[in-house]
Simulated scan of single mutants.
Amino acid sequence: MDEEHLDDDLRVVKGRSLLPRCLRSFLPVYVLLGLSLLLSISLCALSLSRVSAVSSKLLEVNPERGQNFSNRDSLLFPCGPDSREWEYFHGKCYYFSLGRASWFRAKAQCEELGSHLAVIDSFAEQSFIMFRTRNERFWIGLTDRNSEGDWEWIDGTDYKTTFTFWKEGEPNNSGNNEDCAHVWIAGKWNDVYCTYECYFVCEKPLPR
């Protein structure tokens, strides 16, 4: 074998011996990177478990914090998030019907909704209802069906000592059978026969 071929063989052998040595020099780096990754994952898992534990303790100490969403709903929809057709005014909820009915049917529909026909006991409440009814006829919870001339509020409120807002000349019992009251022009009250069909106002307290 000549000297030139010997040098080539030596270079090949040396090249082969250098590759494993190079890999061995990077092996600790790969090991450290792997350990660092495992440590990072472990720390993240530990942090998440601690955050979860702290949140649970905060809710135990102050359970009202878990009710923030319902509290916001009560501010936006004081009559209940599922009762958006009800309108809030001065501590009560009101429903203004979209269809007409007799006084008896209106009374029954209000009761089906867990309420009663509106009982107007102040000028503030009268103004609110007057603004909403806008000269349309709406039944209220006032009647003298039990005794002619003895008007009674449907919830037992004493009629003789409370606010009234009759139209001039009313109640007049025209036709001898006008036993139910509704609001009409400018919100004034008028008596009419109870089978007349008009809109109606229901009233109920705020939900608890």
Score class of each variant (00 low, 15 high):
117 L>Q: 00
152 E>Y: 11
111 E>R: 13
59 L>V: 11
70 S>R: 10
75 L>D: 07
186 A>Q: 08
29 V>W: 08
133 T>R: 04
114 G>V: 11
163 F>E: 02
55 S>N: 13
9 D>H: 11
105 R>D: 10
32 L>G: 06
99 G>D: 15
50 R>G: 06
40 S>F: 15
13 V>A: 12
199 Y>L: 01
41 I>D: 04
36 S>F: 06
3 E>V: 11
23 L>A: 04
196 Y>L: 01
37 L>N: 04
154 I>Q: 00
37 L>V: 07
100 R>E: 10
162 T>S: 09
48 L>K: 09
186 A>Y: 13
12 V>P: 00
110 C>T: 05
29 V>T: 12
63 P>Y: 09
181 A>P: 02
195 T>P: 02
134 R>P: 04
151 W>V: 01
17 S>H: 12
85 E>I: 14
142 L>S: 02
128 F>W: 14
172 N>Y: 14
160 K>G: 03
165 F>N: 09
74 S>G: 11
14 K>T: 08
165 F>M: 03
195 T>K: 01
99 G>M: 01
60 E>K: 04
194 C>F: 03
18 L>E: 13
31 V>C: 02
14 K>N: 13
10 L>Q: 02
203 E>R: 11
195 T>M: 03
192 V>T: 07
203 E>K: 10
92 K>G: 02
140 I>E: 00
173 N>Y: 13
62 N>P: 00
131 F>S: 09
143 T>C: 02
158 D>L: 07
123 F>E: 13
188 K>E: 04
71 N>P: 01
9 D>F: 12
156 G>F: 06
97 S>F: 07
49 S>F: 08
126 Q>W: 15
29 V>F: 09
7 D>A: 07
132 R>I: 05
107 K>G: 03
107 K>Q: 10
163 F>V: 08
103 W>I: 02
182 H>W: 08
92 K>E: 08
29 V>P: 00
122 S>N: 08
38 L>P: 00
2 D>R: 10
74 S>H: 09
10 L>E: 04
159 Y>S: 03
32 L>K: 10
139 W>Y: 04
196 Y>G: 00
5 H>D: 02
159 Y>W: 12
184 W>F: 06
193 Y>D: 01
61 V>H: 07
4 E>N: 09
35 L>H: 07
40 S>D: 13
13 V>G: 06
166 W>T: 05
